[in-house]
Simulated scan of single mutants.
Amino acid sequence: MSELSGTILAFDFGLKRIGVAVGNTLLRQAEPLTIISAATNDGKFAELSKLILAWQPVLCVVGLPTHPDGASHEMTQRCQRFSHQLQGRFSLPTVLVDERYTSAVLHAKRGERIDDHAAALILQQYFDQTR
């Protein structure tokens, strides 16, 4: 994936909200972009479609939650399904990145919507791992 060049969108998938961050392969810096809060799955994918059309990413990164020991749970499988749907619907390569510790980093901002910041941490982790 390191030979890709261009914009990357990252997602912190949740049942109620999807945090979105953006970065590019040149600067390798992630920035929070938006939070998708549509009530239905179709509504969420309509919003995602608009973002993908506007940003034209070369890659999507999705945070993969697991238990602290790395074992999967219900949200692990839901995020994997979301990643496959992104890849299938938009014909974009998709990478899963371990997000186990992003929520711990963001706990200081409790009470605020932090999903886009979590997505930025996920994307920054991707950039740091692919140097």
Rank of each mutant, 00 (worst) to 15 (best):
M1Y: 13
S2Y: 11
E3N: 14
L4S: 06
S5W: 04
G6N: 03
G6W: 00
T7V: 15
T7L: 09
T7W: 08
L9W: 00
A10F: 02
D12K: 00
G14R: 04
K16S: 11
R17C: 06
I18A: 06
V20E: 02
V20T: 03
V20P: 06
A21C: 10
A21Q: 08
G23M: 06
N24Y: 00
T25M: 09
T25R: 07
L26I: 12
L26C: 10
L27P: 06
R28I: 06
A30Y: 00
A30F: 01
P32A: 07
L33C: 01
T34F: 04
T34E: 08
S37K: 13
S37G: 12
A38Y: 02
A39M: 10
T40F: 01
N41R: 15
D42F: 00
K44R: 14
F45R: 03
F45E: 05
F45T: 02
S49T: 15
S49E: 11
L51C: 05
L51W: 01
L53V: 14
L53D: 15
A54F: 05
A54D: 12
A54C: 11
A54G: 06
W55L: 09
Q56I: 00
G63H: 02
G63L: 05
L64I: 04
L64K: 07
L64T: 00
L64H: 00
P65A: 02
P65T: 01
P65V: 01
T66Q: 14
H67L: 15
P68W: 00
D69G: 09
G70Y: 05
A71V: 09
A71P: 09
A71C: 11
H73K: 15
M75E: 08
T76K: 07
T76A: 05
T76I: 08
T76R: 09
R78E: 11
C79H: 01
Q80P: 08
R81E: 15
H84Y: 11
H84A: 15
Q85R: 10
Q85C: 09
L86T: 03
Q87E: 14
Q87R: 08
G88D: 12
R89A: 08
F90S: 01
S91V: 14
L92M: 02
L92E: 01
T94A: 10
V95C: 09
V95G: 00
L96T: 00
V97W: 01
D98K: 02
D98S: 01
Y101T: 07
T102F: 06
S103P: 07
S103Q: 08
A104H: 14
H107N: 14
H107A: 14
H107R: 13
A108R: 14
K109P: 04
K109D: 11
K109E: 10
R110M: 13
R110A: 14
R110N: 10
G111C: 08
E112M: 12
R113K: 13
R113M: 11
R113W: 12
R113L: 14
D116I: 05
H117F: 12
A118L: 02
I122R: 00
L123N: 02
Q124V: 04
Q124I: 01
Q125S: 13
D128S: 10
T130N: 12
R131I: 10
R131L: 13
